[in-house]
Design a protein around this nucleic acid. Structure first.
Lengths: 342, 342
DNA sequence: TTTTAGCACTCTCATTGTTAGAGTGCTAAA
DNA sequence: TTTAGCACTCTAACAATGAGAGTGCTAAAA
């Protein structure tokens, strides 16, 4: 990694800041006048030439200002950005919005996606918390019409699955309650394999119920992530660099189709930096479709028990400091919600 | 309504067909050569002049071909379009895709949105089926941790709500089961007002549970539509007329924010045409933001019991025949699913 | 009366030429 | 080491031009 002088770092920071604001190449003059630099534009130009040589800036054409490269953004995020935390009042406002829905997973997922999108002015995603190992909690059988049975499976952590069975002959609610009670007490807290070992079903109905609940548990376990909520897709489209080119459209299409997300979430190792928040800038050489975009991801939940992913994606020219602090804050907030229920 | 000769109708149809295909103004020549018209271009020009005068076509500029007006599309949809039904094999393929998820509302809503978007090459929406009157079906209380109680409310039709209560002291599962059993038998099939009249709670816990379930029932009842699933937003953005203008972006933004949808669904009277399918062309003078877009909506479900809405929205230059037949088919398919569960 | 060939007319769009100005790199002086 | 000054380059905006697309109209043909 190149070593930069304090002044070079400052100029790089200012250029990135100004470019994020204006979406245009930044001229040496603009820096001097608008940011009260105690330097002449010529000096700034010399430094800019150096930063261009070392790969942190580039020039769209000879007589244009400078634009940060991916490398430049990466250096900025890794070394220069001051580690902003969300101001106390913003935290309070956001926490307050969750007050009503803290007990309903689906609700707070949507809310989180909406807040992420609005605050970061980019697109956002939130995946449902995914348990490492699925455990049975409770089963309920409810007679609906004469031969139809609504079957509700509650997993540890409060996740709910439902299904409707049709039987050959009518079953009354008392019988159903007896079955569900015995199964519930028998299987409570058991994982998929234990459930399989314990169920020695007698009737046709019990057999199909047992089959179904093992299927649901297996599916839930194998999913890398359950539901994926997207929001703010149109925010990204409003950005000037995406108005013309259809690169963004293609990237958004991939994201809407959820194909990239799986890949992205599983391959981004979460090995590293910035306090559990992962920053992917310009596809990092791996994802060609994301050349113009950056993605900020964080896991949330209880490690080893149940985790989900949340994050924002926007133009490479995004406000990293603010976005990262939002992502980090929501990640810890949602972790609390998960901890309450698991 | 103007009276058009057969030839005029045919020319209007062909122009609309060709314009939907090419997204460009249609010239008199193109019609004669590409569609083997047994007429000269001059004759076609005369008819085109007439159709322009009567308001079905317009000319972007003097030396350009013709483009259908909103009025033109409306006449086409109302009078000229042959009432296409989806081919048998397409129906079968689609039905087959639903096979696995016919019992899970959330699943089939997503699937329906995805199929609508892909088939119509436009954006799609599906709202959850909304009961006319909410009725209690079943209540289940499950002890999770020492002082936490997971509370699952099942409404008639299979809709499920959940909440977590925290009590001052630990409660055992037997007590909870007793409470939920007695409440379930007491309240089964009752609507919100009857529930209110019947609950004369004794303990603090019972009181908060009763409060909550009445709140949920009330909220569910007051919603014009519950969950709204959107899909295929990026399909619309790929259309040439939206690449440049930001009109589409604004329209999509409104739709993403769900503000327009409520208005749209409630105000579109479903008074009319095309077998329960409602076609809104170019905002119909009411919605300015939708000048360039058309919306095809249909209700599904059991009228008077529980209904939802589904549809597609795309450029005004959309393939109405195909889209309408898809919407109609899915509407009847989902109606079957609703009928099975209510 | 209806259709059509022919032609003048209009408007767009792509191309070219031109110019102002934005911004740089370099040099020589401070 | 910094900076003033200046030549140089490239873009973006504008005007001028011409080809071509497509029309409307007229007068002749069916």
């Amino acid at each position: 990694m190149e070593r930069l002088t304090g002044r070079q770092q400052k100029i790089l920071s200012l250029i990135i800041h100004e470019h994020i604001r204006s979406a245009e190449p930044v001229a040496s003059n603009r820096l001097v006048t608008d940011y009260n630099l105690d330097l002449s534009s010529a000096t700034v130009r010399n430094e800019m030439a150096f930063l261009t040589e070392t790969g942190f800036l580039r020039q769209p054409h000879t007589s244009a200002g400078r634009v940060p490269t991916e490398e430049g953004y990466r250096y900025f995020v890794g070394n220069l950005m001051r580690n902003t935390t969300l101001p106390e009042d913003a935290r309070r406002t956001i926490s307050h919005q969750f007050y009503q829905s803290r007990n309903d997973i689906s609700n707070w997922m949507h809310l989180a996606a909406s807040i992420l999108a609005n605050q970061s002015k980019a697109a956002s995603l939130v995946t449902s918390p995914h348990p490492e190992q699925v455990r049975f909690k409770h089963l309920e059988l409810i007679a609906t019409h004469n031969t139809q049975i609504l079957c509700v499976l509650v997993l540890e952590g409060g996740e709910i699955h439902q299904n409707v069975f049709t039987t050959d002959e009518a079953v009354n609610q008392e019988d159903l309650s007896r079955i569900s009670n015995s199964l519930s007490t028998l299987l409570c807290g058991k994982n998929r394999i234990e459930v399989h070992a314990l169920t020695n079903p007698l009737t046709e109905l019990e057999k199909s119920i047992a089959d179904w609940l093992m299927l649901e548990m297996e599916q839930t376990e194998n999913l890398t992530s359950g539901e994926v909520i997207l929001d703010g897709l149109t925010n990204v489209l409003a950005e000037p660099e995406f108005v013309e080119s259809d690169e963004a459209r293609r990237a958004l299409k991939l994201i809407e189709e959820r194909t990239l997300l799986q890949d992205l979430i599983s391959r981004s190792g979460f090995k590293d930096q910035t306090n559990g928040v992962q920053v992917l800038i310009g596809g990092e050489g791996t994802w060609d479709e994301l050349k113009q975009m950056s993605i900020i991801l964080a896991k949330y939940g209880l490690p080893g028990v149940a985790t989900g992913t949340l994050g924002v994606f926007g133009p490479i020219r995004m406000s990293y400091g603010h976005s990262i602090s939002i992502v980090r804050f929501l990640s810890s907030l949602l972790s609390d919600f998960v901890a309450e229920q698991w």
